[in-house]
């Protein structure tokens, strides 16, 4: 069996300090995988290695069978990744519909773009706001719009960095439902998250990072039951 995304021995150091050190991780087709860990665990750094914001200091990243360790972000997207970064970064001055259009235009035949925009607007609950500048949407709506833009690229792997950051509990729940629905339709996902309620809601395979290393792996139930994980989250004086 071949993994869709495979990270082998990835490390990243900043000025001699390892933010990520010798991490292995693989994501199978159809899987929804969560990357969790306390603040400073290296989740975001690992995510950025996958996105290609910067190259790893050591290790390899393989996506759909080809080595993308040094590929630029746009090239990775071209191979079928799609990325939603942590802070919502929609095109604030452009209308919501045009935001989607820019994402769709390379992936859908021209005559079908309009209908596809409508479909996505409906899924995201943004139909009434289609012609408003995206910057006027609420924080939660901007998050969803960005997920919509990520989906518009027709990815085979969706990467989400803290999709619930700054959302209300109700918005978080709706995001969870959206993510579950996408996975049920067959979308492979890698999600960085620290909201444990959200991770439990979407009930996936979990990798726990701590101090830049893989600390534990398993299903969400196993992880929740693991006392050592609770310890690193609550913080004990000298670790395990």
């Amino acid at each position: 069996m071949s993994a869709l995304l495979e990270i082998v021995g990835a490390s990243k150091s900043f000025g001699g300090v390892f933010a990520v050190s010798d991490v292995d991780l693989s994501v199978q087709p159809g899987e929804m995988h969560c990357l969790i860990g306390p603040n400073g665990a290296g989740k975001s750094t690992l995510f950025k290695l996958v996105v290609g914001t910067y190259p790893p200091s050591a290790g390899r990243i393989v996506f759909r069978g080809s080595d993308i360790t040094r590929a630029k972000p746009f090239a990775r997207v071209g191979r079928g990744m799609s990325i939603k970064m942590q802070a919502p970064s929609v095109f604030k001055a452009l209308p919501v519909r045009q935001n989607l259009h820019i994402a769709l235009q390379d992936h859908v035949a021209r005559h079908a773009i309009g209908a596809e925009e409508d479909r996505l607007l409906d899924i995201l609950g943004l139909t009434d706001d289609a012609d408003r500048p995206a910057g006027l949407l609420s924080h939660g709506q901007q998050q969803w719009l960005e997920i919509g833009m990520a989906l518009a690229l027709r990815p085979v792997l969706l990467l989400l960095d803290e999709p619930t950051a700054g959302l209300s509990p109700e918005e978080t729940f709706r995001t969870g439902e959206l993510v579950r629905r996408l996975n049920a339709e067959g979308m492979t996902m890698l999600i960085v998250e620290h909201d444990m309620a959200f991770v439990r809601q979407i009930a996936t395979g979990v990798t726990v990072l701590h101090l830049g290393k893989v600390f534990a792996r398993g299903s969400i139930d196993e992880i929740v039951a693991d006392e050592r994980v609770a310890e690193i989250y609550l913080g004990t004086p000298h670790g395990a």
Partner: peptide
């Protein structure tokens, strides 16, 4: 508007 976002759309 946002070069980084644009790159992440594959351009």
């Amino acid at each position: 508007e946002d070069p980084q976002r644009t790159e992440l759309l594959g351009y």
